[in-house]
Design a protein around this nucleic acid. Structure first.
Length: 308
DNA sequence: AGCCAGGCATCAG
DNA sequence: CTGATGCATGGC
């Protein structure tokens, strides 16, 4: 029961690079699985799980996508519409990327624009999963926190067999992780983060932190609440605020962002992470999330180590 | 062997 | 308030 969705150039506001975007290590969720020339994921619809394969069929400058939907039952028109809208949302395809590029075309950051045109902020399809991804991402590498999440899904998620026979594991709900032991979680290679994960899951499960209501609050207020979760500090909070909740003024500052900002804007002088964050937010305002993504991606890809 | 990775909690000053 | 240290883990 396959069907196809086209996402046409007119629906995408500016350039888009699927490959660069999916592989850029954002904590909205674990990396999508690669297939020939594209990526796949799955979504739970009321009547069935649907697998979707996303392919970029036209180039970055005037992009269009082809999405193959696979269900075990016929896929309704309504389901196609829901998934279509969902993809526009999570891939940030409505963000007016050219406005960002032109507004800062004379700034240092334009170097990164030219390296990765069409790189976009990916929004989470599952808040809780994004929070755990953000917590796991601390003091490790992108590939390693991705492995942690895959193991959590494998050991604690629900196993689904997709229509084409592919094995798929959902991300466990907060209650499931709240009721596991820290020791058992260590099997997922999460190390000392196991304490944080269980505690965060408990706080969400018990309603102490209501993830969905956070997106209705102001950025500063939501951030303050997130910082009460053990294992959630300034960087993890901003990752979740940006990729999990879609606060575009959030600016996650990790070692890469700190280095490149010091190099480009402070003559290599040492600047605290807090001051790097304030600098980005004053300069880029509602484009802060995008700015930190481009700075992060550039510094990491170019392996910027020296402060020059 | 030692340093580092999309840091944070804790403690010293 | 800022700065140093321990923390699991694995790649280099």
């Amino acid at each position: 029961m396959n069907t196809e969705i086209q996402i046409k150039p007119e629906e995408i506001n500016g350039p888009f690079n699927l490959l660069e975007t999916v592989l850029s290590g954002q904590t909205s969720g674990p990396r999508w699985e690669a297939i020939k020339e594209g990526f796949w994921n799955a979504i739970r619809m009321p009547e069935q799980y649907v697998k979707y394969e996303v392919y970029q069929v036209k180039p970055v400058d005037r992009p269009s996508l082809s999405v193959i939907l696979k269900g075990s039952k016929p896929i309704s028109f309504n389901t196609k519409e829901v998934i279509h809208t969902h993809l526009l949302h999570i891939l940030g395809l409505k963000d007016p990327l050219n406005e960002f590029y032109s507004k800062f075309k004379d700034d240092k950051i334009s170097v990164a624009f030219n390296c990765f045109p069409g790189l976009r902020v990916v929004r989470a399809s599952n808040n809780f999963e994004s929070l755990i991804c953000s917590i796991c991402s601390q003091n490790t590498t992108v590939s390693k926190w991705n492995k942690m999440i895959q193991l959590i899904k494998k050991f604690y998620g629900e196993q689904i067999i997709l229509p084409d026979g592919t094995l798929f594991h959902t991300f466990p709900n907060p209650e499931r992780l709240a009721n596991t032991s820290v020791n058992a979680l260590m099997a997922c290679q999460v190390g000392y983060r196991a304490n944080y994960i269980v505690k965060a899951a408990q706080m969400v499960a018990e309603g102490e932190v209501a993830l969905n209501s956070l997106s209705q609050k102001r950025y500063e207020d939501a951030r303050e609440i997130l910082l009460t979760i053990p294992g959630v500090g300034p960087k993890v909070a901003d990752c979740f605020l940006l990729y999990g909740l879609g606060f575009m003024e959030a600016a996650p500052v990790d070692v890469w962002v700190k280095r490149i900002v010091q190099t480009w804007y402070f003559k290599g002088c040492n600047v605290s992470r807090e001051n790097v964050r304030k600098f980005i937010q004053q300069k880029f305002e509602n484009w802060s999330g995008y700015a930190s993504l481009y700075l992060f991606h550039y510094a990491r890809k170019m392996n910027v180590k020296a402060y020059m």
